[in-house]
């Protein structure tokens, strides 16, 4: 929708996005239950895609273990709620805590390169999963539920979760936007292309990567906590499944890796594909994997990249055009 209404001018994008936001907020009070629930799912997907894109597309860090933060976000929410913290506060606190935890993890993991980092994160996700299983509150793979949400009427709960997801998504996207527009963010896209060039601009690649990592961990944890709120039940196996990362990768690769709009487009596509094809069961997953492989080999900039170069369309200027030029002028 956003794409159709807007044009190449970013001012128009801002107006369009604001209108869309208002429309989505008002939808909370008029849309049917089913629509609200589906939209909540969509918002979580957008968050997941945007966060993985932050990491891989802008930070050059391909993690196969983002389910670690997704699962921990959900788990921490359960834990905090068990301490008597109101559920929606617990959701936010959980995400913050996981963000905090990701700091020491980043210190350690960012020493690894490429595939080592990717699988290393996967191992960490497995560690997180196994450790969470040890918590008696969770009852192993049986899992538990976010009972404290029951204080709200089912309708109220639905609307609240919807609004929480909407606000989280918008907040994270705006946060990402400013992160990318900051000096560090612009440099990050330089790092992605050429680490030495980034050094010559005077940016410490490692530090910036760390911030991207932490931001992505926070956002992914928030997504996990929101998912928990919506689903209300927590089984470690589901939340710590590598499938989540597979979805993120699909969304970002198809939408356009390293493109702000790409992740959003990818999430919309994934949402549509899921809605229509999830009934085909496993074939749908085969298709996702195959499309991801094909996209990364033959359409490295994703659909958005193709649209961009075809139409010269750029809705959200996060500054990578500028970066390219900066880079060139810095080359010997």
């Amino acid at each position: 929708m956003k794409i159709k209404r807007s044009n190449a001018y970013s001012m128009a994008t801002v107006i369009g996005a604001s209108l869309l936001f208002v429309a989505l907020v008002s939808a909370a009070f008029v849309a049917s239950d089913n629509v609200l629930e589906r939209l909540t799912v969509l918002f979580v997907y957008v968050i997941l895609a945007a966060m993985w894109n932050t990491l891989a597309g802008f930070g050059g860090l391909v993690s196969i273990g983002q389910q670690l933060f997704f699962g921990l976000g959900a788990y921490a929410t359960i834990r905090l709620a068990d301490f008597g913290i109101p559920p929606f506060v617990a959701v936010l606190m959980a995400a913050l805590l996981v963000g905090l935890l990701s700091w020491p993890i980043s210190k350690f993991m960012l020493h690894l390169k490429a595939a080592e980092f990717g699988i290393g994160m996967w191992v960490l996700a497995s560690v997180g999963h196994l450790l969470v299983n040890l918590d008696p509150l969770i009852q192993g793979e049986t899992g538990t539920s976010l009972i404290s949400l029951n204080v709200y009427q089912i309708e109220t709960r639905r609307v609240l979760i919807y609004l929480a997801a909407l606000i989280s998504m918008v907040g994270l996207l705006i946060g990402l936007f400013y992160l990318l527009r900051s000096k560090a963010g612009i440099a990050m896209q330089a790092i992605r292309d050429n680490e030495e060039a980034a050094d010559s601009i005077g940016v410490d690649a490692q530090t910036v990567k760390k911030w991207f990592f932490i931001f992505a961990a926070f956002g992914t944890a928030l997504a996990g906590a929101l998912w928990l709120a919506q689903a209300s039940s927590f089984q470690p196996k589901t939340y710590f499944s590598v499938q989540w990362t597979a979805y993120m990768i699909f969304m970002v690769l198809v939408g356009g890796i390293g493109r702000f709009e790409g992740a959003i487009l990818g999430a919309l596509l994934f949402f549509a594909v899921e809605t229509w094809f999830a009934a085909t069961g496993v074939w749908y997953l085969v298709g996702l994997g195959a499309v991801a492989v094909l996209c990364s080999l033959f359409l490295p900039k994703g659909l958005w990249g193709a649209i961009e170069s075809r139409l010269g369309l750029r809705l959200i200027p996060v500054g990578y055009q500028v970066t390219d030029e900066t880079l060139k002028s810095h080359k010997p």
Binding site: V62, V286, G289, A290, S296, L297
Partner: peptide, 20 residues
């Protein structure tokens, strides 16, 4: 296409194989 692409493609491939 760089060192990240093999990670993505082989991971995608594993999903295809598993589900097939």
């Amino acid at each position: 296409g760089g060192e990240l692409l093999p990670v993505l493609t082989t991971f995608g491939l594993s999903i295809v194989i598993d589900n097939l």
